[in-house]
């Protein structure tokens, strides 16, 4: 039974595309046929993060407008055979995204045998974000531990609970997961940043994982290689934990404790 997962946040720049890329890669590497779709029409960047920007010929809007088939538009990921990318259009505007168009593409993807369909939402609560969440079975709410991100995540949760197809037809509600990104235990300990417990207290949805703040993410985007492939880094491990928890495993939270470096470490430049 295929599952449609929307990765959304409300706030921009919190790590939706970074997380969509690593999450879908993680699922595919464990043997599940996965597709990740960029819903940010006009400001597309999923293809950059996945490293396939030079192989984009057709996009989501071409397929909706029947100018190309899904097979022509889907790009196979260079890192993983099970993963496919459906890029957004750079030139068209959001109105080209129609609800019926999106629904028919998702149905076709299900029929093609995809187990997981990850929808990378644009920022905001307008049409593009709405189209990404309408058909979702599950939602990953990406949140930075900071007040405006938490407020915007709260807003988008309300919208999912009101405007998703599942909400409107009275079916089982969309399963919500909280993904906290750019977490810095040091700043939490210094009371400069909200703790993950503070964020959970406000948003009240189950926590699927915490991704620590890390320079690896910037390197990953620059190289067009999702962060989860950088084996051994904290970010890669954190994303692997997220995928494991999504697939049902129960794991302890990592990267939440700050250990103050000893004197020698501080002399030699540990942060």
């Amino acid at each position: 039974m295929a599952r449609i997962i929307v990765v959304t946040s409300g706030k921009g720049g919190v790590g939706k595309t970074t997380s969509s890329a690593s999450f879908s890669s993680g699922l595919a590497m464990r043997g599940h046929k996965t597709v990740v779709i960029d819903f940010d029409v006009g400001l597309r960047n999923l293809d950059l993060i996945m490293g396939c920007e030079r192989r984009v010929v057709y996009d989501l809007i071409n397929v909706i407008n029947k100018e190309a088939t899904l097979n022509q538009a889907l790009i196979k990921d260079k890192h993983c055979d099970n993963l496919f990318i459906l890029p957004a259009s750079q030139t068209r505007d959001k109105e080209a995204l129609t609800e019926t168009g999106v629904e028919s593409i998702l149905n076709e993807l299900v029929n093609m045998g995809f187990e997981y369909i990850v929808c990378d939402s644009p920022a905001g609560i307008e049409h593009g974000a709405l189209m990404a969440l309408t058909f979702a079975d599950e939602a990953i709410i990406v949140t930075n531990p900071e007040v405006s991100s938490v407020r915007d995540s709260d807003r988008i949760l309300g919208i999912i609970q009101a405007k998703s197809r599942r909400a409107q037809t009275g079916s089982e509600p969309v399963k919500e997961h909280l993904l906290i990104t750019r977490y810095s235990p040091k700043r939490v300990a210094a009371d400069e940043m909200l703790s993950y417990q503070d964020v959970q207290e406000i948003l009240r949805i189950p926590l699927i994982g915490i991704i620590p703040e890390s320079e690896s993410v910037l390197h990953a985007s620059n190289q067009g290689n999702p962060a989860i492939h950088f084996k051994g880094t904290d970010v890669a491990e954190a994303y692997e934990d997220v995928v494991s928890r999504f697939l049902g495993e129960e794991l302890e939270l990592r990267f939440t404790n700050y250990e103050k470096p000893g004197l020698l470490q501080r002399i030699f430049g540990a942060k």
């Binding site: 407020r151 807003r155 949760l157 919208i159 609970q161």
Partner: peptide, 8 residues
């Protein structure tokens, strides 16, 4: 019985 969220 459910949280009232921002914007609601």
């Amino acid at each position: 019985d459910t949280p009232v969220r921002a914007g609601q």
